[in-house]
Write a protein that binds this DNA or RNA. Structure first.
Ligand SMILES: NC(=O)c1ccc[n+]([C@@H]2O[C@H](COP(=O)([O-])OP(=O)(O)OC[C@H]3O[C@@H](n4cnc5c(N)ncnc54)[C@H](O)[C@@H]3O)[C@@H](O)[C@H]2O)c1
Ligand SMILES: NC(=O)c1ccc[n+]([C@@H]2O[C@H](COP(=O)([O-])OP(=O)(O)OC[C@H]3O[C@@H](n4cnc5c(N)ncnc54)[C@H](O)[C@@H]3O)[C@@H](O)[C@H]2O)c1
Lengths: 213, 213
DNA sequence: GATATAATGTGAATATATTCACATATACTA
DNA sequence: TAGTATATGTGAATATATTCACATTATATC
């Protein structure tokens, strides 16, 4: 595999998702162009990405969905389920904890943690545990992935503690840049920023239409 | 302004955010390198981006924060607040509705909508209204921006209706590609995909460390 | 079985994005 | 007020990402 490239990997997960949908629609074979249309890229982009990931099909015959998915699952890893914890069970944390959609992607939320004792629910199917138990839990259960949904003011400190205990990948909702060693993977979701850029481009569109008159 | 470029605009919002933080820390002037460090890019990236947005400072003297913010707010628009609606007040929709952080970015959630009558709360500060009133509300209040947080199965249809009524920008949480005319701005937040890529790269890191031994 | 057709796979070409590097202007020092 | 150090602003260079275009080869047809 070539240099690990986030944008490329992200597209491959999108392709896989689209191909699963096609499978469930009853299709047996797909062409690069079908996948491209479903995901919103060009067919040469799909073929180039597949090429970089050593995913091959049949000249003229397209790709046999079951074979392709098998190979994709080998490279993208769907064979084992991944255990994930949520730190901060407020509004966002709770929404994620209750979401059913992660399971079918092999992602299992195994516990939440919160500093607020009143949120603790030990015997729920997915328990919320007190924050003091976080490090121990990560260590004994060998958890690698965590969702960080605490207030901005606590985020850096909580991240450090998670990493200290053994977490290697974090999905962060606090709208700020967190510092971390480069062997930790941090993806930021900044919803305010998403809205701001939408607002910007909506304004731009209006401006453009005006100019075109 | 040059060709509207999403990645560039996004960085500019990040810069602005960082500069506001510096202002609140009491700073009066900044250098491109300070901004770069805060956001995690190079200083030439900052200067190039500023250049493209006609944001200028003082040779040798860096940027006077108040002047810079004034100019940024002119190009990025923070002078008027933007009204936004949420369609689908389930887990995610409710979390967003209750979030306090949007206000200070000039984003005001003015109403939620849900098809489930039991969620309707007409006299809350930010009411949840029945879905049937959506189109009328968008039209009379001239709402341009909406957050889409309904189940996947309903997302396309609801988007179409929103656009039909006058919405021009949408933040979509349903994990699927939605089709729309190109004069509508749609940003997708796909949290499952975010987690999948984190899991992938955490796996890659482990693999790499193994290879390095 | 021979032939025509159509889709893959991939280097080469192009487009886009980032970084370099330095001439320029200006704030500070003495 | 002259001299110097230093950060900007931006073309040019480089790096990264996408698209083109076509040789290749499997499938379908006759
Ligand atoms: N809710 C949203 O829609 C939204 C939108 C954009 C960004 N965010 C960001 O997501 C993060 C969470 O937002 P929220 O709305 O869920 O906040 P929230 O206040 O509802 O929840 C935060 C939770 O974290 C817990 N907590 C606080 N300090 C902690 C600590 N040190 N360790 C463990 N838990 C701790 C609190 O008890 C609370 O339950 C914030 O950083 C916020 O800026 C949220
Ligand atoms: N909750 C999460 O953490 C999470 C994570 C990733 C993706 N998502 C996606 O976000 C979306 C919302 O997820 P959720 O967990 O909030 O779901 P949810 O079921 O909690 O909420 C959906 C809400 O939409 C309402 N609704 C259904 N059809 C509607 C319609 N036609 N018009 C208006 N309202 C309608 C329902 O009554 C419900 O209140 C889904 O597409 C989901 O896949 C959610």
């Amino acid at each position: 595999m070539k240099k690990a490239n986030k944008i490329l990997v992200t597209r491959l997960y999108r392709y896989r998702d689209a191909i699963y949908r096609m499978k469930y629609m009853g299709l047996v074979k797909v062409f690069s162009e079908n996948i491209a249309d479903a995901v919103g890229v060009t067919s040469s982009q799909v073929r180039k990405d597949f090429s970089l990931f050593k995913l091959s099909g049949n000249k003229r015959g397209g790709y046999v969905i079951d074979d392709l998915l098998k190979k994709m699952n080998e490279s993208l890893g769907k064979n084992r389920t991944q255990d994930v914890i949520i730190v901060g069970c407020g509004h966002i944390g709770t929404a994620l904890k209750l979401y059913k959609g992660f399971e079918k992607k092999g992602i299992r939320i195994v516990a939440g943690f919160d500093i607020d004792e009143s949120k603790v629910t030990r015997d729920a199917k997915v328990p919320i545990l007190p924050f003091q138990e976080l490090s121990q839990f990560i260590k004994t259960k060998k958890i690698k992935i965590g969702i960080l949904a605490v207030p901005e003011t606590a985020a850096q400190q909580v991240l450090d503690q998670m990493v200290q205990a053994g977490i290697e990948g974090i999905l962060n909702f606090a709208p700020m840049r967190l510092s971390h060693q480069e062997n930790v993977v941090v993806n930021n979701v900044n919803l305010g920023l998403e809205l701001e850029t939408i607002i910007y481009f909506v304004g731009e569109i209006e401006k453009k239409q005006y100019e075109e008159k």
